[in-house]
Design a protein around this nucleic acid. Sequence first.
DNA 1: TGTTGCTGACCGTACGAGCGGTCAGTTAAG
DNA 2: CTTAACTGACCGCTCGTACGGTCAGCAACA
Lengths: 258, 258
Amino acid sequence: MPGRGPRASSRDAILRVFAEHVADRGYADTSLGDVAAELNLSKGTIVHHFGNKETLLREVHVAYFARRFAEADFVHVHLADPVSRLVAMIYALLAAHRDDRAASLACLRELVRYFDGDLTDYVRKQRVRYTEIVVDILRAGVEQGLLRTPDPQMTALQVFGMCNYAWTWYRPDGPQTVEDIARLFAHDILAGLVPRPGADPELDELVSAAIETVRRAPGRSASDDPGPDHPASGHGAPDDPTSENPGGDRAEPVPTAP
Amino acid sequence: MPGRGPRASSRDAILRVFAEHVADRGYADTSLGDVAAELNLSKGTIVHHFGNKETLLREVHVAYFARRFAEADFVHVHLADPVSRLVAMIYALLAAHRDDRAASLACLRELVRYFDGDLTDYVRKQRVRYTEIVVDILRAGVEQGLLRTPDPQMTALQVFGMCNYAWTWYRPDGPQTVEDIARLFAHDILAGLVPRPGADPELDELVSAAIETVRRAPGRSASDDPGPDHPASGHGAPDDPTSENPGGDRAEPVPTAP
DNA sequence: TGTTGCTGACCGTACGAGCGGTCAGTTAAG
DNA sequence: CTTAACTGACCGCTCGTACGGTCAGCAACA
């Protein structure tokens, strides 16, 4: 127990346990009382720190996407060609299931809560921005003749689906490692399931190399590593979390996924 | 209002409205009182018919899978080769988002409730069986040299993911039709995103033909058509819904998805 | 050095709303 | 008359939230 620590802020701990509960039970079935009890805190303390339950979920979500954006930045810095970047994004999305489990599941389970304007527009912007990163990769690949798709937006949703749906079946102690899964998914979607005579072995190497690049990224494997302070570089978070887009229209012209 | 109809069983109406509420709000946030009010019924009536809330969800789930199994039967009867069958299954899964919206969303949203033994083993068996249908198609394709994947089980999960995740972004009034989406997804996963010189145009025809076959299936377009009484043919439901597998182990060796 | 006063993390209780579920009774069809 | 759909009041419970109060640490001041 924190034992009324000397200014020991319980914020992070509350956020962590709350995310775990949401990941395991879902938002509606997560009780603040249970979270408080697990931390030997009073329910009132949680309210003191965050105000209400919804804010907790929002903070989990914002932090999760900050980590994903930092990851995307890393990918763009260390990998140049669109195909490698796409593989890396697939791997990153799948690896989050293992390395950022609680937040990943919490966000994916409760994803639908961000549709009806329940949560801040900032969260919506994060989702749109993240989707655009992958769409841009696909579009660049098509322009360079390295990829082929008549609708990058739609294909991005396909990629998000095959990765994000993993939360329903992926288990860290399963037979396949995340790297195995990423390699298979990337190969399937890049080379296709229909075999062709002139299948180039270079593709397998490219896939493995891209995965390895991200896997060896600094600040990995430490599961409770909150990641670098996500410097506001290329794909940094849009605007500011505190500013409530005034008069922002609720219409969502382009579907987003992650 | 049904006006205390002549033996007019409200069962189906309750099930329908309940599924819609779960699809829109999720199971935990669905109130039996709200469902009853929408039907001008008393909450007690719902309990009278179904016993409790969990049973309602289970019945929605069982009915949903019965429809999917009937669909899979149709596919196997009318399409012979594994590639066409795979395309048809992709299309069927996507089309359910449009033609069987409420039940699809309800099942996909609350999918995770079937992991911890909350619901009957029968529901679990349905999921496993459905997964096996697609795995078998993939395996047959590999054996006949028409498909290539080192791990049919994993690839099946990939396919389920890209289809089922559509519930998070698909809107019936969106720019693309379900047929467009299915065609794109099928082509992407079959031919791959990396273009190859000798891309055969036959594949596009095969994809379109398979989709068209399922689209023209009898008993379609009538949205509230409960479908044929899913005759217990090849892929019929496993065992009996009422029999509670005694001593069934909770272990789920192979992950399932839909 | 002693004291004073402020800040903020934290507690404990209370409250009101809403939930799933119960049950005795009513109504109408067969 | 029997049966079953249905009602509406009711119970027990859980939850999010509100709020008054406690106490440790710290800084300013005498």
